[in-house]
């Protein structure tokens, strides 16, 4: 591991000044991904700016009936919060589906959004990887890509984003809020992660030196009937091979409002707007759910070893939406 300086920021202005003065600086939340990547030389920061003293550890209601979640709220506190569990249950479920109890106690919301892909070639310093070493190529295209992207990928990178939390946030139209030395800013989650192009090393639309201060969830009555389901290769403590956040509001047998987001299929949480459009105003039955999933997956371009993700995501959508529809009918 490269030697580095460490500063514990006393306040927001101090943190922003430290981050702006040193291009090789990284903010430190829980460190569960950053420290791991530093150990194998993938991340080589010159300075860590510890955010633990910043007042970003609260979950508060917003004036319009949503929630504001601070950037240093831990995954554990987010998943245990009564308002999150009551009003956005799929978000609590998504967070609980990720990592382990130990890691959830350490990991923070801001770090969760900024965590890096678990593509084995990204974390192998000896392998070509355009995300880690721009222009070096993508070893996954012709290598081990069983768990890589089927939607929105480019010939330059087929890695998937590993977050469960971000999938639920995408379904609920979350907005990422940040501070810079020039003032605050915000990015809807749908615009926070850049589409993959020829520069997969550029992952977010955050301006240089910006510090995420939190995530704002707008009020979403539909989210009260929501679910997150994760498919993985062992029963617990593993990354998804496919996941789904869904919320469904049925009135008089017709889909009044629906939210769908797919995880582990793209470089970012994949809001399934085609599927939502296909369902809204129509019947809430298995045939409609399957047709909606197919509409979303029509744009998929699977690689030789990950075509299984298409039927997996279709079955996941039908299964979760059918459960939500049956529960709504009770």
């Amino acid at each position: 591991m490269r030697e580095f300086r460490y500063e514990r920021a006393a306040d927001m202005a101090g943190a922003l000044t430290l981050l702006a003065a040193e291009p090789g600086a990284r903010p430190l939340g829980g460190g569960t991904n950053l420290v791991d990547l530093m150990k194998n030389g993938i991340e080589r920061p010159a300075l860590l700016v510890d955010l633990r003293d910043l007042p970003l550890g609260r979950i508060e209601p917003t004036a319009d009936g949503g929630l504001r979640i601070g950037a240093t709220v831990t995954n554990s506190d987010l998943a245990a919060h009564p308002d999150v569990r009551r009003r956005y249950p799929a978000l609590a479920q998504a967070v609980l589906a990720g990592a382990s109890g130990q890691l959830r106690n350490m990991a923070t919301v801001g770090g969760n959004l900024l965590q890096r892909t678990r593509c084995g070639y990204f974390t192998d310093a000896a392998a070509p990887c355009n995300k880690r070493s721009p222009g070096s190529g993508c070893a996954a295209l012709t290598g081990e890509h069983r768990n890589h992207a089927v939607l929105g990928a480019s010939p330059h990178c087929v890695a998937v984003h590993p977050s469960d939390m971000a999938v639920a946030l995408a379904a609920f139209d979350a907005v990422v809020v940040y501070e810079t030395l020039d003032g605050p800013g915000e990015l809807p989650l749908a615009e926070f992660y850049r589409p993959v192009d020829s520069n997969p090393q550029l992952e977010t639309a955050l301006p240089p030196g910006a510090l995420i201060t939190g995530v704002v969830l707008p009020p979403a009555p539909v989210a009260a009937a929501s679910r997150y389901r994760k498919v993985r290769e062992r029963a617990s403590y593993a990354f998804a091979i496919g996941s789904l956040a869904a919320a469904l509001d049925i009135r008089d047998g017709i889909v009044h409002d629906v939210r769908l987001a797919f995880g582990a299929v793209a470089s970012r949480p994949w809001r399934a707007r085609q599927a939502e459009r296909a369902l809204t105003g129509g019947p809430a039955d298995a045939a409609a759910f399957a047709a909606a999933a197919d509409a979303e997956l029509a744009a998929a371009r699977p690689l030789p070893h990950n075509g299984y993700k298409l039927p997996l995501m279709r079955n996941l959508a039908v299964s979760v939406l059918t459960e939500l529809a049956e529960e709504a009918a009770r």
């Binding site: 430190l28 569960t32 150990k39 350490m106």
Partner: peptide, 29 residues
């Protein structure tokens, strides 16, 4: 494992469990 994947290094930090291998000592001051 020394990479946060096995839990052998679990300790309680301010009463909550954490993996000590991914916790920088300086940040536990």
């Amino acid at each position: 494992c020394d990479h946060g994947q096995c839990g052998a290094c679990t300790v309680l930090l301010d009463g909550r469990r954490a993996v000590a291998c991914l916790q920088l000592a300086v940040a536990a001051e």
